[in-house]
């Protein structure tokens, strides 16, 4: 009996909740119940009776058509049903995308770390025969090479993901695939949590090295900065890589944040990111090249990171209120 009620509820779930529909649903339910009781009286088993009642229900589209029910617009726009093959291709591509973007970001951070490292090595006379001025300059060569490779990776992987854009716009998967994805997602959840813990731990622990080294000397603290940046780079790689995999499940299962609304929000945060990060690089380069502040100017990156995190966090919260 519960089954019949649930079945009817599901059938009516997509229909507007109007007086007319409620009345219709009630009528149908009492009909179906009566049919069910009579079948049971005729000696049918519970399952048989329910099976017959449901098989004789018909097609909800007939009612939608007859009652001139406006079909939910969203429903009409969204569902492009994609195949299992597309789903798997997308998951694979997302994982690769996460890896490549992660490596790119890692390289960007390492680029500034080696810049700091080389200028300090020159200062400490570990690298000999180079003036301090030249020391800060030679670090720039690998710096730019690394940044260039990273940018190349961003563009390349971005283009590769372009063909999956339709998935990001919202697609529907069959219920079988959905179940399969849910299971995979749940299995992945623990991996994700562990990666998150490791990443956060690395971030929190990274300043400790800085403190320890700064006890010895100013020079040593610079090496501490290098170690800090390396740890942060590893943490960021972990965040990006596992985060991308998680997002791919979320997109396919259309969990919370990939609603139209959130997409809009991501777009604005993305636009801000595309302005402030290059700006940070410009500040970094000018303060270094013109004012020769290489020993301290790396700080613009963590500061930018913090400011950006503050902005995107605050923006999300403010937006959510409306």
């Amino acid at each position: 009996m519960e089954t019949i009620n649930n079945y009817l509820e599901n059938m009516f779930a997509s229909l507007p909740n109007t007086e007319e529909m409620r009345k219709l649903k009630e009528e149908l339910l009492s009909n179906m119940e009566e049919k069910y009781h009579e079948l049971k009286r005729d000696g049918k088993t519970e399952n048989e009776a329910i099976g017959i009642v449901i098989s004789e229900f018909g097609n909800i589209d007939e009612l939608i058509h007859e009652f001139d029910i406006p079909v939910d617009k969203n429903e009409e726009e969204l569902p492009t049903i994609i195949t299992d093959k597309e789903v798997n291709n997308y998951l694979e591509a997302s994982e690769k995308f996460g890896k490549v973007i992660g490596i790119g970001v890692f390289m960007c951070i390492i680029a500034s770390a080696q810049l700091v490292l080389i200028s300090q090595l020159v200062e400490d006379n570990v690298i000999v025969g180079v003036s301090e001025q030249a020391g800060s300059i030679i670090g720039l060569v690998p710096f730019f090479i690394l940044i260039a490779i990273a940018v190349g990776l961003f563009i390349y992987s971005g283009m590769k993901m372009e063909k999956y854009k339709y998935i990001e716009d919202g697609v529907e998967v069959t219920s079988n695939t959905k179940t399969y994805l849910r299971q995979k997602n749940e299995a992945f959840q623990s991996t994700f949590t562990i990666s998150l813990i490791i990443g956060v731990a690395l971030c929190i622990l990274s300043p400790i090295i800085l403190f320890i080294t700064s006890i010895y000397s100013d020079g040593a603290s610079v090496y501490g900065v290098v170690a800090l940046l390396c740890m942060v780079a590893v943490a960021v790689y972990i965040f990006v890589y596992y985060g991308t995999i998680r997002d791919s499940y979320k997109k396919l299962l259309r969990i919370d944040e990939f609603s139209k609304y959130k997409q809009e929000e991501n777009r604005i945060i993305g636009a801000v990111a595309s302005i402030i990060w290059p700006l940070a690089v410009v500040i970094f380069l000018i303060s270094g090249l013109v004012f020769n502040q290489w020993h301290i100017n790396w700080i613009v990156f963590p500061i930018t990171g913090l400011l950006f995190a503050m902005f995107s966090g605050a923006y999300s919260i403010l937006k959510e209120k409306h």
Binding site: N59, I60, E62, H65, E66, F67
Partner: peptide, 10 residues
């Protein structure tokens, strides 16, 4: 079918 019947009633 149930749906046919009620479409017709309507």
């Amino acid at each position: 079918k149930e749906t046919t019947l009620y479409s017709a009633f309507n």
